[in-house]
Design a protein around this nucleic acid. Structure first.
Lengths: 135, 135
DNA sequence: TCCTAAATGAGAATAATTCTTATCAAAGAT
DNA sequence: ATCTTTGATAAGAATTATTCTCATTTAGGA
């Protein structure tokens, strides 16, 4: 089962219309902000409280259903792609794209297996690839 | 000349006490927020307007004197280290440390010289290394 | 020293996020 | 199917971060 409902229940979360529509929004918007999600939900039909969206997003992050994306801005973006991946950041727009590259992952993991960082235990390696999208 | 004043004048910026103390703060605080900088300046002696700090920071970023750091939080942090480097992020605290590794840089550049990303022109590669600092 | 464009201060305005509390609803127990 | 309880949501206030506005000041070249 890959339904939205099963994703919630797998994490021991109650299934509510709000949570389902937030999860749906995350899967249908590219790295959305909380505001993107609110607008997306309100567009179609239902209303939702702003505080609920923030609270649910935090819950999802805690439960590992989604991740926060790092940006240089003062607004938090979320990512529903759980498979390990990197990000392409546009240097002139806000566009961010997922970048999956297992070969790169192997190289990075291999490199840091040999080369320890003194006083630091690595848990995750994410490459930020900044540049320009051609069209 | 590596004085703070020369850093400003090299970029064609007027030398003001506010700019000097902001630059000084950036070099003396580890990846500060605007608020960290304000507190640092007010601690010692001089007062400074909050708006001025934000404005000057933006100017510095535009001129390439400092950089914004990417984080998962909704607060912007700055970095005065201009040499290309990566970052170590603590997964349980807000600590961020610079990580310089030219060997890694060569591997990454070499990798993406061979492996193009379709529709994307790379300008900068920054690795986010998340994990735990041992004390 | 004077002049002018640029910088700053002060506070209002905006934006993003969190908090509070009353009401509501999911889902397990009956 | 209904009840009950615990957790979820709505609404709006509060907080925090950042930006904007505009009057005043100042750096630095003329």
């Amino acid at each position: 089962m890959f339904s939205l409902k099963s994703k919630l229940s797998e994490k021991g979360l109650k299934i509510t219309p709000q949570r389902l529509s937030i999860l749906d929004a995350i899967y249908n918007i590219n790295h959305p902000t909380a505001d993107d999600i609110i607008k997306h939900i309100r567009q179609k039909h239902s209303n939702i409280a702003i505080g609920t969206v923030y609270k649910v997003l935090e819950t999802f992050v805690q439960k590992g259903l989604i991740k926060r994306i790092t940006t240089e801005k003062d607004v938090i973006r979320y990512d529903g792609l759980l498979r390990h991946h990197h990000h392409l950041y546009s240097t002139d727009t806000v566009l961010i794209k997922d970048y999956i590259d297992e070969e790169l992952d192997k190289i990075l993991v291999g490199y840091f297996k040999k080369k320890q960082i003194h006083g630091f235990e690595i848990e995750e390696l994410t490459l930020q690839i900044k540049g320009k999208f051609n069209n």
